[in-house]
Amino acid sequence: MGNYAKGDTEAFNALYTRNKAALYRYFLRQTQFSNQAEELSQDVWTKVISARKNYRSSAKFTTFLYQIAHNHLIDHIRKQSVRIVEVQDTSTTELDPPVRTKEQPENELESQQGQALILNLVKQLPQAQREVFILKEEAGLDLHDIASITATGVETVKSRLRYALAKLREGLVETYERT
């Protein structure tokens, strides 16, 4: 980022390539809509470009990036008066079993089923727990960085993450047992 601030556009390209997908998915999981995720991620990258001179090398770039992303998401939610409602879509919770074609081996089918299931379970998490989980899984941030970004304590983050994982685990076990 420091190199980019000095005029090295290649440095920015590298940063963007490394972080673009994770950031996009961060917004996608939070908003549930791909068009909003595109718009928000583009806004954040524009802010990053504009704020290149304010970047301090003492902070990790991902922390810097997701700090902006978190604040922008909060602004977006407030602007649209979107109430973060927990998704109660039972039709998606009870997944229809994927149709098995003749060529698909059984373990691959199970894998596909598991991937769709975990995404649905993440969608059903409370917003605070979901954000902590995504920041850990997508951005690879540790608890301290997540606490810094979300302006909460480390213990709170740890608790939210534990609850999120427990819910995901329960959801997976429950679904596999049912099927």
Partner: peptide, 10 residues
């Protein structure tokens, strides 16, 4: 499992 599922790209 999440890493395998989460593959969306902008």
């Amino acid at each position: 499992l999440y890493a395998q599922a989460s593959t969306e790209q902008p």
